[in-house]
Write a protein that binds this DNA or RNA. Structure first.
Lengths: 343, 343
DNA sequence: ATTATTTATGCAATCGATTGCACAAACAAA
DNA sequence: TTTGTTTGTGCAATCGATTGCATAAATAAT
């Protein structure tokens, strides 16, 4: 402990001949403290370079001003932007954000939540792992009366606030846009995964077709992991099958990108021969050639919303935690990859 | 407090008719505790579902197991990957990472560091803001005897460990590669900013030219903010100037991308007419057409290294904190944008 | 058998701030 | 003047775990 001895409320108290209680109250704006005393305390605190020890405060008050934030992968634009959004709101309210990543591994997810609880966070904001089927660790959070907000990857199994974007609407917009551009044979890349968001995108695709009187063709629907390679192989399969198609709506930008590569390699023109739309508005979409039309999910705003829901829950009477589900509206970002009609 | 009452070491102690001290020691593997007692404690702890209260522990021991991590921008691939790297090491050692972003604003940086100190983090890993000229807030960290590790954006003004990549070497590799591809009139996009990393890249560029007997031409050097738009306008200027050039080495991928757009718009072929190399290996570089050659800085590994330096400092005798500077070697990722010679 | 040493545990203070309850002083009401 | 309120502080317990020092019991050394 060769650190310069930190000043505590006791030092301030001693100097002013009052007790630590008084100092504590003065610093916290308790109305029972006289103006004179309050000012003296604040002045002395400044003079002594006092900095509150949040750990001591946390132990006694039970509030750490920490939010545990769990994401599958920190270094993916979508998630890092959400973290950014949460951090912005949290910081402005003097809360700090602890981040952990699950890497889609259930054990990691469970451990992270436990670690958060041990660190005595005031609550958790999380996106559920792809393979998570069991939610005991989250139940524990709720049982302790802590706010829990789920974003993007949510589950109906937990009675808690969540924020998602309207994947159905995003897919509907994307598909409708392609139809408006004159496409009628629209392929779709999706995944088998049992995650709602992909089901919703699929539903939006199908409904848009139906609403425009276009029959769904199962041979145009491909299921995989939605990575670049999947997009490439789906495109290959499409071409090999000899199927008639004039557009692809991919539930992921990466798969769309894979398709773009293959199509270009085969000498096909985008969007003239095949129009392309992706999903997520990854940063790279504006840099492809042609730039890729995609669906923006406003991740930073999603982070803001998640944080707001969190603080709502935190400040509400514990008795009546009314789980609130917020659905954000996505936006179709139209770029050259889907613009057949030059307007 | 309707939360299920958490079990404490006192509950365990009571049940076993020992004291809390014994329980604490047993849980912490203190050798002065008998095997019998230790086992009984561990068993009871499990039965009662005991979870240590890290806040209480932190208050007493002075160790919070928290690392404060400060980055300019969370949602940029380079930084989020570094966060990821740090998080991986930290988590494996049972430490948690609190992230804050400065957005390159000095006040934010200062406040974040103060907030970290108030939260009593065990140390800080940070990248300095572009405009930061004053380092008092970091000095405070060192004065308190806390480990401070700087990464990427560092400063010689602080006596502390740092990890950077060899920007000089990266630029040297990039420029040499262009020369090997037969380029002799290589433009360079850089910035006026007083940050070492860009100076180093500039130096690498110049030295590579010299070493290959190519004279530097000031009319081929452009300075700006290295964003997409800067790249575009530099490229425009290059073309308008009528200067003779057959390659561009940009100190940033974004500016390189801007140049690629403009060059393609003007009907120039890449790499045949102009070869292009960027810097940072942004995720989008593999998706451009042609894919952009760039310099990989291994951000995740940089995160690992930063974390390792951090724990070294944390575990070393406070007396002898030997600041250590680690220089990582970058790698040139050769893609089509610079491959004139098809090998 | 006596003393010295080791082993295992307890005692009580401590980390620094918060907070319910008590209470003196000052002021208002009767 | 007496009683009732309000105002401003103090007292002391508390949050839960850690740790230096003391000590009883068990074992080893003489």
């Amino acid at each position: 402990m060769e650190n310069t001895k930190k000043t505590t409320i006791h030092d301030i108290a001693e100097k002013l001949n009052v007790t630590a209680s008084t100092v504590s109250r003065a610093l916290n704006g308790n109305p029972r403290i006289s103006d004179t005393t309050r000012k003296a305390v604040l002045k002395t605190a400044r003079e002594l370079n006092y900095e509150p020890n949040q750990i001591a405060s946390a132990l006694r008050s039970g509030r750490t001003q920490l939010i545990g934030m769990l994401v599958p992968t920190i270094n993916r634009a979508f998630f890092s932007s959400i973290i950014r959004g949460v951090e912005e709101v949290a910081n402005s309210l003097d809360y700090r954000v602890i981040v952990s990543q699950s890497n889609e591994v259930f054990d990691n997810e469970e451990n992270a939540v436990k670690a958060f609880l041990n660190a005595r966070v005031d609550g958790i904001i999380a996106s559920i792992g792809k393979n998570t089927q069991q939610f005991d660790h989250y139940e524990q959070v709720l049982e302790r009366g802590l706010p829990l907000v789920l974003f993007d990857r949510t589950t109906p199994n937990l009675q808690t606030s969540q924020v998602v974007i309207d994947d159905y609407q995003g897919a509907y917009l994307a598909t409708s846009h392609l139809i408006e551009q004159g496409c009628t044979r629209i392929a779709h890349f999706t995944t088998e995964r049992k995650i709602d968001i992909y089901k919703e995108r699929y539903r939006g695709y199908v409904n848009a077709l139906e609403d425009h009187g276009i029959e769904r063709d199962e041979t145009l629907i491909f299921s995989g992991n939605l990575q670049l390679e999947d997009g490439r192989s789906h495109a290959q399969d499409l071409l090999n099958s000899g199927a008639d198609f004039d557009a692809i709506f991919s539930a992921s930008d990466y798969a769309a990108m894979g398709a773009m590569q293959v199509l270009k390699e085969k000498g096909l023109k985008i969007p003239e021969d095949v129009a392309l739309v992706g999903f997520l508005n990854e940063p790279f979409t504006s840099f492809t050639d042609p730039p890729l039309t995609s669906v923006n999910q406003f991740p930073i705003e999603m982070g803001h919303t998640a944080a707001n829901l969190f603080f709502n829950a935190l400040n509400s009477e514990k008795k009546e935690i009314v789980p609130k589900k917020t659905v954000l509206q996505p936006e179709l970002i139209v770029r050259a990859s889907s613009l057949k009609k030059k307007s």
